[in-house]
Design a protein around this nucleic acid. Structure first.
Length: 439
DNA sequence: TCTGGGGTCCTAGGACCC
DNA sequence: TCTGGGGTCCTAGGACCC
């Protein structure tokens, strides 16, 4: 049996822990650059503000109802997430951290010595709420997909008090008949349209399609697994997370700019900043990468710009896997120059590190590369030391204290790529100088 | 005027290997 | 006229997730 716990309106709930005045009012949290709505309180949902709505389209509506809009504060949400996950880990044999606000639980064997599962589930919710201030819902079922279904319905129907268990065929059928097909985990916009065109309206209808149909229309084996999971046949195991952190297979960093950029050096300022950040994450995970991708995007809402809006280029690092920021910057610069076209107006850039593996598989030498400070293997041990010192300094004194010169804008100038974040709340739980003051 | 960021998995063609 | 089978890696793209 699997459990799926998630935080209700997670980002808004995190903010409310430190600002109770936000309770019972419409509150939204905005994406980077204050662009879109990414979390909504129940009151904001009631106003009809859709998930993902551009902020400028709902600003007036929110103002009319004395609502609040907050910039996203990932330092706070990430730390609150760790606290929630730590509480969950105390209650069950294994936890899979699925996203910042969601975790799958291994519920195997919990009933025999702890009373009923439902009572156990309520104790977990109460403990998380008491220790972190975050309200949650918990769905339980024999497959992950059904646990997601259960969680969804537990959130939708308050009379369930945040918990739903789907462990018999009759409960499963009732639940699936109550759930629109578009709300099933794994059914996005494209598939929902296809399914509805076929007259399949509920999750139950989807669970009845043939294997051939699922494979043909829902992305091959992915679609067939989805159908089987709805029927109660598990296709996805629990992937337990080590001490509440999850190890990634790719690491990326991308941002929309505060303004359009056209110059190569401005773009390099942004790309080098993102690449440095991605390399930090890579080292924090204890891995090296052997694939580097850079992408640049133009405005996809500008009808004068023909697609594709995003162009990317990938390099298999000729010198093998690395976590060395300076080495990555040297390759990144080449990729950016390959991608860049003068005259284009770029709105966003990003980097992706792929092909991750732990260090120690041996350094691949590049037969044709001239030995330079950033490519010579001889400098490897020293470079590694340098990265360790860099990370230690930045951990101790704050991110960006020591950084590559490429990422620093011209003296006295604000970085031209920086976006806005006009409604940011303090990092209450991760910065001493931003602690909440109580009188 | 203003429209996010960070992930996963799968497919498919081409180059290349034996 | 007739032109293998099985595999990896690379690269790009498309669907999905929160």
């Amino acid at each position: 049996m699997y459990g799926l716990v998630d935080g209700n309106n997670f980002y808004v709930s995190c903010e409310r822990v430190f600002q109770p005045r936000l309770d019972a009012r419409p509150v939204v949290v905005l994406s980077n650059n204050d662009g879109n709505v990414v979390s909504r309180s129940a009151e904001a949902k009631q106003l009809g503000i859709p998930m993902g709505a551009p902020f400028f389209q709902v600003r007036d509506l929110l103002r009319q109802h004395q609502g609040h809009a907050l910039s996203s504060n990932y330092a706070l949400y990430g730390d609150m997430s760790r606290r929630v996950m730590a509480r969950l880990a105390d209650h069950v044999p294994a936890v899979e951290v699925y996203s910042i606000d969601e975790a799958f639980l291994d519920l195997h064997g919990l009933t025999s010595f702890c009373g009923t599962l439902d009572a156990r589930a309520q104790r977990i919710r109460a403990d998380v709420l008491r220790c972190t201030g975050i309200p949650t819902c918990l769905g339980m079922a024999p497959t992950k997909t059904l646990a997601k279904v259960a969680n969804r319905l537990a959130k939708k129907y308050p009379e369930l008090h945040g918990v739903l268990r789907l462990d018999t065929d009759s409960r499963r059928e009732r639940a699936l008949r109550a759930l629109p097909v578009a709300d099933v985990w794994g059914v996005g916009r494209q598939y929902a349209g296809k399914l509805q065109a076929q007259g399949l309206r509920t999750a139950w209808d989807l669970s009845q399609v043939s294997e051939a149909w699922a494979r043909k229309h829902l992305g091959g084996v992915v679609g067939w697994r989805l159908v089987q999971e709805l029927r109660g046949q598990p296709c996805h195991d629990l992937q337990p997370s080590e001490d509440g952190t999850l190890s990634r297979q790719s690491i990326s960093c991308s941002r929309s700019f505060g303004q359009r950029l056209t110059g190569l050096e401005d773009l390099w300022g942004a790309v080098s900043t993102y690449l440095s950040r991605a390399a930090e994450k890579l080292r924090a995970q204890g891995d090296q990468a052997h694939l580097l991708t850079i992408f640049l995007s133009q405005d996809r809402y500008d009808t004068r710009v023909p697609p594709p809006y995003t162009r990317s280029t990938t390099l298999t690092l000729p010198s093998g896997p690395t976590a060395n920021t300076l080495r990555l910057l040297a390759y990144g610069r080449r990729l950016l120059e390959r991608l860049y076209e003068p005259g284009r107006r770029y709105v966003k850039a990003g980097v992706v590190l792929d092909g991750l593996e732990p260090p120690g598989r041996g350094q691949q030498l590049d037969l044709f590369a001239p030995a330079t400070a950033t490519t010579a293997p001889v400098s490897d041990a020293r470079a590694q030391q340098l990265m360790q010192r860099l990370d230690a300094l930045n951990h101790r004194f704050g991110r960006g204290t020591v950084r590559p010169a490429a990422t620093v804008p011209a003296a006295g100038q604000p970085a031209p790529w920086l976006g806005k974040s006009e409604h940011r709340t303090p990092a209450y739980t991760t910065r001493l100088d931003e602690l909440l003051t109580v009188r």
